[in-house]
Structure formats: C-alpha cells, structure tokens
Write a protein that binds this DNA or RNA. Structure first.
Lengths: 339, 339
DNA sequence: AGCGTCGTTGTTCTCGGTAACATTCACCGA
DNA sequence: TCGGTGAATGTTACCGAGAACAACGACGCT
C-alpha cells in the first residue's frame, strides 16, 4: 500500500521485491501447484506492498482470452432486453467476466454483421444476442464466426447455443386463464412477426386456442409500442365480438387499456386485457395488469453458464428453458355474458 | 476475403504480403503522414486480401489505451439510469470507444470502491458514474484514481468531471405549472434523500415554492418505487389539504395515482399528480401523466465528449447542463376550489 | 561536389503478462 | 555412489501491436 508517485507496478517489480523471478509471481497469481508456502507468502507480501494488480490487457494478449462477453441487444428500450442484459452482466461478473453491450437499431442503424464485427475485433471470448428478429438471426447464421455465440430466443436452434424463455408455456398460461374465466373469443395483439418472441407467442396462442376449440380469429400485428395499441383501441367504433385481448407485451396492453378507456370502454368490464413481461409498473396500472412474469435472473445465469462451458471447451449443458408464471390481476375478469 | 483455414492474420503477415515492414502497415492503419500512395495501396490490398483486423488487445497493450469506458450504474432498474447507459454506449461507439457497465446494488452488494477497482484493473481509459447517491460520491471522492472520472449528477463538483441534468430547471417548470393552474399547497414526494437527484429536486422544489410564497409543507420521502407511493396514498384517510403532489419520478407518480384511486380519490379531479422522467408509458396512464422530459441522448453525447477530452488531454469543455422540458398531460389540472 | 534536409521505410525495443523448456536440488532406490 | 524422479524455480521466447530511432535516398543549396 505504498507505491507513492511511481507508475503502476508490474509483475517484474513484484518479483524483484519478493526476490524471485517474475514467473514465480505469475504462478502464485494463477494458483499453480508446486510453490513453496514460504515463497508464496513472500510474493503475496510484495504484491501487497506495491498494491499490485495484474494487467489484464497484457494477460489477455498472452492467453488469447479477454474474459469479456459481447452482448448484442436489439432494442434496448424494452423492459425484457434491458433486464436480460442486466442479468447477464451480473452473473458474468460473478464468473470473472465482464460484458460489452452494443445496442442495435437505436438512432444509428447498425447491422448485426457490423455489431458482431465490432465485438469480435475487440476480442470478446463469446457473443450473446438478446431478443432478436428472425432477419437478424438469418444474418447471424451467415456470419462465419470463431467465438461461441449464444442467442436468447424462443426456439432452440442447431446453429447457435440457445437459452430461451418458455414463451409457449407462458402463452398457454394466458389462454388457459382467459378460458377459465369464460372467454371464448380472444384477440391476440402480437408484436412484429419478424421478432422471434412475437412469433413464438403468436404460434403458442393459436395452438392453445385451437386445442380449446376457440373461434379462429385473425390476429392484429402491433409493434410492441403502447402508442400503436392505443391507436388500435381508439379506432374501435363499437364493442368488438371478442371479449378479451392478449397483448404480446405489457406496453401494448397498457396502450390498449388507455385507448379503450378513451373510447368509452372499460377494462375488465367490457373487455379483459392481458399482457406479457410483468414490468414493475404492471401492478399499478388502472386496472392492475394481468401478465406473465419471466425469471430474467435465472436466464442470465444460464447464459453465462453455457457460454463459459463453450469458451472453456467443456460439455455444453442442454438447452435451458426459463419458466414463466402467470400473474392474475384486475385487468382480466369473466366476460359480460358469463356473469 | 480468402484466408481459409488458418488463424487470424497479424500485422506481419500483412506486411509480408504487401512487401513492406510491419511498421509501414501500422502507419497505414493509423493514418500516419508520409506514406507513398502506392505503398499505402499495396498495404490496403494486402489487408483486404487477408481480411485483416488489427488486434485491439495488442494495440491496447502497446498504447496503454484500451478505448474502453467503464460505466457504473446505480440501480439499473430505473428508467433514467438505463436510458443514460444506453445513450452513453451509443455515443461512445460513435467515437470508437466501447463501454463496460457494472450495476451496483443488484442482488450482490458491490461497493463503489469495488466497482472502480474492477474497472480500473480492466484498464478502462475513463470512468462514468451514473445517478449515484451522495454516500457513493463520498466513497468515490476518497478513491485515489489515475483515470478521468465523470459523474452524472445534479450538481457540479470540483472533484470530478460532471454532466448534469438540469434538475433545478425541471423542478421549477413543475412548480410553475402547478401554480399557474391555481395550486397553492403542493406536496413533494421525493426520492431517497441520499440520492443526489432526489436531493436536487427537493431543494429546487423548496426554493421555487418559497419564491411563490407557497405554504411550507414537510415533504414525504419515498424510495423511487411505485409500491411505496401506492402504500402512502392508500394510507390517506381523507382528502388532504394540499391539492397537488409532485413525485420525484414517474414510477412514484403512478403508484400514487393507483393508491389514490383505490382510496376513492380521482386524479386530477381530487388531486393533481406530476411525475419526473417521462417514461414511454407516461402518456398512456389513466390519466396520462404530466411529467418532465430529459434529453438523455444529449447527455450521452456530453459525457463522451468530456471524457474524450480528458483522456486525450485536451481542454475540458465546461460543465454541461442538459435541459428539461415539461410535458403537461391530464394528471394535472386546476384544483377544485379554483374551478 | 559536398552537405543538410526531409520524405519514406526499416530495425529494434517495449508494453506486461504467460507458455515452454531448462535448471537446480533433494531424495530415493539399486 | 550414481542415476532417476519430481518439486521448485529460472530463462527465454512469444502474444501483436506501437514508439523510438536508424537508415536510405532524392533533392536543393552553396
């Protein structure tokens, strides 16, 4: 803790003070076996004395490992991607990795190819792509790449490592919930179908609706934004035939409720609305929003686990599916005719 | 675009192909003057042929510059910090930097000291701390540090570089707006006063309220969360004497509206509510939320500009104040007695 | 013609670690 | 007693770039 004035100490200065060669210091740092306890102690003392920290850049150059994970986030505005990024950062740090995020489609129009290039040139050990569109995935698939790449998305994929939120189960929960309440005609307001998550929710919705023998009704394709949903609801001229709307995310659900309200329809009296995400504010909307909660923390852990395994050449754990949970609140209720 | 099979090419392989020394290649890469056009062309062709990318880790070791900015985010859940991080990443990338975020107080309790250590050991060229508490700032102030450090917070500070959102102006807009509507008795629901932004908004509120000669009323200290605000509002037994509430962020404003609603009071009929942040959903609440918008994009640009100046030893631009804008919506209206 | 200058390019060293191989020495068994 | 073995440590090369300095040649000027 001395080291006044001079620049950052390096491994050889530590070696000199400890009276050993710099390799011995390196071995102590890396927990190599076959170091005499006394030698180790002297090295540790020297490290302490100089307040020495290994230079990770130099280490990265020598080992060809940066211990960094590049994360490509599509649309960093949404709640989901943001939460996932945070979760990945957290568990990466716990594993001694750091994270370099790049946001796509934000002001500048960065292509997936460019983002990958950028990160690979920086030497990240692995890549993680969050919540992408199928077009991005197609682009990624065409990129020959030397580092492990993991995609967080709905379906497994032979090309990449995959961790997925169980969209199917979550959506099924929603349909079952609405059916249990008595709904037999449900509208799905999906996200842009180019988004894999939107597509997965839409498919699961159809599948489950069909298995309940519910009326087949064309879905409405939104853009994830509350604004779109608001405009849609505002455009309704009379109370529709369907009695519930399943929006593919909370933002749209909220826009819907707002639009319906402005049109003179009340939720859930006239219409039930269900979202997806359970954003922190969902329970404070008027009415509080029924939605689906996803365990982003678990997702972050899985992502880092798989990537570490891939980086270190260990066996890669099987595809992880992150579970979901329905949170029933006041925005969904029995339809009028059933009451 | 050939380079089949073999490993990543390095600068010397490029040099060999171009028939020059590796230094000439380095000079071309770094736009040095005094390279014959013909030589440059040959080098560029060789680069193209091998699809060569400079190894940034090696460059970082040689130049002692990583071109990375470490960002410490306190509470990555909130809208503000998240948006700021995104904005900083965006403009950093435009400047050829990348960003390494670390989230504080998220599951693990990481101290500011540890976060700084982590990032400095990684060799970041500069540090940016977003939206911190005064205790964190105090801790940071005690850390002797070799890289430039910038803090995004309300007030200028001689110790650090500073970029600040003009909390004072934003708050003043709110008070003026409410006063213009006819309110004379306003409650402030602040954030935790340990947070600099909360403190700044609280101070500005008092100052402005006093200058209008408004009744001095103790503030209520919240914790930024909608839950807290909900509980507070729910706890009201009768309509209070104040006619408006200024919440220090949108989340709390929304929790308030929810709680008031559950208590049987309507916004803005019984009480006006104003928030701060203009989260994307603010306009879709019922009622749509009057709030203050901040230009996070401009903030990101300023942060990166100042840090680059500091890193490159240029003159540091003066403290930047990011402007704010009041967005008046339906949650604020004239008080009952004025109508 | 001789010399200084500048444009252009090359050689060598360095950044701060780790890997690979070499060395030393104690101990053990034949 | 000698060679083998393995623990403990040292020496040297290397990762892939940039910095500093050297070298070379063309050119202009006296």
């Amino acid at each position: 803790m001395v080291n006044v004035g001079s620049d950052k100490p390096n491994i050889r200065q530590v070696a000199t003070i400890a009276g050993v060669s710099h390799m011995t210091v390196s071995r102590v740092l890396n927990d190599h076996p076959n170091i005499k306890p006394d030698t180790r102690r002297r090295v540790l003392e020297a490290i302490e004395e100089l307040d020495y920290r290994p230079n990770l850049v130099a280490r990265a150059l020598a080992t060809q490992r940066t211990r960094r994970i590049g994360v490509i986030v599509e649309s960093a505005v949404a709640h989901g991607p943001t939460s996932i990024l945070r979760a990945v950062e957290l568990s990466a740090r716990a594993a001694g990795y750091s994270v370099t995020p790049i946001a796509l489609h934000e002001g500048d129009a960065l292509s997936p190819q460019e983002a990958v290039d950028n990160l690979v040139t920086q030497g990240v050990d692995a890549l993680c792509v969050i919540a992408p569109r199928s077009s991005s995935v197609a682009a990624l698939r065409r990129i020959a790449i030397t580092v492990p790449m993991l995609v967080v998305k709905a379906d497994a994929d032979p090309t990449f490592l995959t961790v997925s939120i169980d969209q199917h189960a979550g959506t099924t929960l929603v349909v079952d919930h609405l059916v249990a309440l008595g709904h037999r005609d449900i509208l799905h307001l999906s996200g842009p179908l180019d988004w894999l998550d939107a597509r997965a929710r839409e498919r699961a919705f159809h599948t489950r609706a069909k298995s309940w023998g519910i009326r087949e009704r064309p879905i409405v394709v939104g853009d994830w934004s509350a604004d779109f949903a608001y405009d849609f609801a505002k455009g309704l001229t009379r109370l529709p035939e369907y009695t519930a709307i399943f929006a593919a995310n909370d933002d749209m659900a909220i826009g819907l409720i707002h639009g319906l309200h402005d049109r003179g329809f009340e939720v859930p009296t006239d219409l039930s609305v269900v979202g997806f995400d359970d954003i922190p504010l969902a329970r404070h909307f008027l009415p509080p929003l029924t939605t689906v909660r996803q365990d982003f923390g678990a997702l972050g852990v899985s992502v880092v686990e798989m990537l570490r395994a891939a980086i270190e050449g260990r066996d890669i754990p099987a595809l992880t599916r992150i579970p979901t949970e329905l949170v029933a609140r006041a925005s969904s209720a029995a339809p009028r005719e059933v009451r």
